[in-house]
Computed example of a mutant assay.
Amino acid sequence: MEDMQLQSIKYWSEDDRPREKLANKGKTALSDAELLAILIRLGNKDESAVSLSKRILASVNGNLNELAKLSEDQLKKFKGVGLVKAITIIAALELGKRRQIEAKITLKKITSSRMVFEMMQPLIGELPHEEFWIIYLNNSNKVLKKLCLSKGGITGTLVDVRLVLKTALEVSAVAIILVHNHPSGTLKPSSADKAITKKLCSGAENIDIKVLDHLIITEKEYFSFADENLL
């Protein structure tokens, strides 16, 4: 059956064969389904790799961000998708996400809370658990380092102020931005959020490091302590 599948693709028009189409016309000429079909290579006895890819994408309304949320077990529910194909899809989407993140943080000058949100949302905006991150900046407000300080359950995280300040001194940062996500979707800062912000501001001030902002991030929105004059 697999041989029949390979043979059927072999005799398609060149424009309909994703790998050949990419080689001849470039990556931008391919649809999302065609790119996905290159990853999974083969479909099943009833449909081609492209048809299978279209069906997978249709299940998430063509949204690649939603596709990236599917687990290995969810992907394996599609006929023709086994362990190897599922892992290949997950790995490819994770690489794409990391590329997006790196492009946004490499010595990028931070000029607004919106820029911080766009940088960090792909990293923590869709997580089912809470994470607390520190962004370290130089005197031009360019990113020197990002540090995931803690990971926790939905109820909250533990923040080590000493580690925050130790790392700031190691990278010669003059300012920091605090960022954490709320998996619940609420943007309202909790009393704990306010307390840790105050504690970090106080500690950083003692070594001449400024806390520029604290962002709470959800999947689509954010709350900025600086924008709301809460620092």
Rank of each mutant, 00 (worst) to 15 (best):
L212E: 14
Y11A: 10
S51M: 15
R99E: 13
D160Y: 00
A37D: 07
S202T: 15
M120R: 09
I209K: 04
K54H: 05
L169I: 02
I207H: 01
F225E: 12
Q100Y: 13
G82V: 03
T28M: 15
I154F: 07
A23V: 11
A91P: 07
A29S: 12
K76P: 09
D227H: 12
A91R: 15
L42V: 15
C148P: 11
I89R: 02
K79L: 10
E205H: 15
K210L: 10
S191A: 13
V81F: 05
E126I: 08
K199L: 15
L212M: 10
A226D: 15
G26T: 11
G125P: 05
T88G: 09
V60A: 06
V60E: 04
D3K: 12
P189D: 05
K194V: 09
Q5R: 14
A103T: 13
E126V: 06
G203Q: 09
L178R: 07
L231W: 04
Q121V: 06
N181G: 00
R99P: 12
I209H: 03
S13A: 12
G156C: 00
K109Q: 07
H182R: 01
T28Y: 14
S8D: 06
V211D: 08
I207R: 01
T155C: 08
G26I: 11
A33M: 04
S172A: 01
T106D: 11
L35F: 09
P183M: 00
K108T: 07
N138Y: 01
S113M: 00
D16Q: 14
E126K: 13
I40S: 02
V50H: 10
D193L: 01
L187V: 03
L22A: 11
Y11K: 10
S48A: 08
I209V: 03
I90M: 07
S48L: 12
L6T: 10
